[in-house]
Design a protein around this nucleic acid. Structure first.
Lengths: 241, 241
DNA sequence: GCCGATTTCAAACGTTTGTTTGAACGGTGT
DNA sequence: ACACCGTTCAAACAAACGTTTGAAATCGGC
């Protein structure tokens, strides 16, 4: 339930030189992250994980209290610093803007860049990027409430600045455009992170120019999302049937 | 493998008055669609399906040759007419445009509208919409190759018209913007179709103005995607750090 | 009313799932 | 040397998994 980061038993006294080995714990987290990204959570058994991690089957239950605890730990390990980065970058953009509204591109940069950039540079592999692109649609209900809670603070902090940066846009429309931006980001992460072996690359004879660096992907995403969120709203020309 | 729509045994002779009952088959497809959307494919057992459908456990194997066959049938039943609709609408837009390039909004309309609109009006429930939003990220490899094959024709047909409608846009950038549009659409379908019971609605105190009709969602999506795909491309002002 | 084909059914198949158990291991402090 | 604590391990647990089986039930055509 609420035992998100509580280590297994490890009675808290003398908490100085803690985490004696924790190598098995880390290996389990890494391999679980990789396998979850490749086969999904339900498609990965604890035996798959422990076998790939060269650990015992019961290690998952010992270190994480069960498979559910491992799932939460896998996501929490990445999501917490990711969202910290987002908030930090937004703070910087707010300070840089002074009293005037934060430019839309800066808000999007603070939101998007950590997903693509910081996650990779911190010794992270591409596996969590694939997992990120999928996480919102994982059917695990516990995970869903957990993710919603983690994201709530971020969205709540970003939303007022979107409102200021896009004056005149109705609240409902802004909600949906934010959701569109979310979907754009997640699908792009999923596609980009697995592009090396992606079957979609052969869909329409795609050339090699589709390979992007992380920085290029960030810029493309911001360009696309900024233009989309700034799209004129109102009863313009009706669409043809 | 390639037995996508082949009925179980049913030796083909006297193929006139076929499909004697097929009520069990249809019930299984409907309930499987619903449960797949709610719990994911791996999270749904054949016993869950057959129990909810008031059928026998072996019915899945009899009618579809196994769970994999059922999965393919669930997707194929919706995807085939959906993509037919897309191609038909694109044809109409091409004819309407004459020799000039098809307007970007018309291309997007032909691509997006069937997903939101036609799928619902044809007696479809919302369940496949949720499944649609998730299908590209289902870890089932067989399903993936199947979906890629189904979508290949559509993408191959739409791409040349995107090229004409967006002159000057590099091929690589166009690929990614198309992918962005794809992600936008799928995430929007997922969010919109489950909005009634969606936890995201409570994330930032969203008002009731976020409820959209299908038509409103289509127009919002087209506005957003059109603006995003038309975003200026080049080495403009560098983003702030 | 009977026959052959089609469909349903209860029961069981072997495998895999997540989890638990209790003993053995490997350090550290005394 | 001893006891202690955190960790690992092989073995087993009941439950659920997809699938198979062979016998009933159902139906249409003659």
């Amino acid at each position: 339930m609420s035992t998100l980061l509580t280590l297994p038993a490890k009675s808290a006294p003398a908490a100085v030189a803690k985490v004696p080995s924790a190598v098995t714990r880390l290996t389990l987290l890494d391999t679980a992250e990789r396998l979850f990204a490749e086969r999904g959570i339900d498609g990965t058994s604890v035996r798959d994980i422990t076998k790939a991690a060269a650990a015992n089957v019961s290690a998952v239950n010992y270190h994480f209290g069960g498979k559910d605890g491992l799932v939460e730990a896998v996501f929490f390990r990445r999501l917490a610093p990711l969202n910290d980065r987002r908030l930090t970058r937004l703070e910087a953009a707010i300070k840089h803007a002074g009293a005037s509204p934060v430019p839309l591109e800066d808000i999007l940069d603070a939101f998007i860049r950590p997903s693509v950039d910081e996650l990779r540079t911190g010794g992270y592999t591409n596996h969590f990027l694939r997992l990120m692109g999928r996480c919102l649609q994982e059917p695990n209900p516990k995970l869903e409430t957990f993710l919603v809670g983690v994201f709530a603070e971020v969205v709540g902090t970003f939303n007022p600045h979107f409102v200021r940066a896009l004056p005149g846009l109705p609240t409902g429309e802004l909600f949906w455009r934010t959701s569109f931006m979310f979907g754009t980001l997640h699908h792009a992460l999923y596609t980009w992170s697995r592009f090396e072996t992606c079957q979609f690359a052969s869909m329409s004879g795609m050339p090699q120019t589709t390979r992007l660096t992380g920085e290029q992907l960030v810029r493309s995403l911001i360009r696309y999302a900024a233009a989309g969120m700034r799209a004129p709203f109102g009863s313009e020309d009706p669409l043809p049937s």
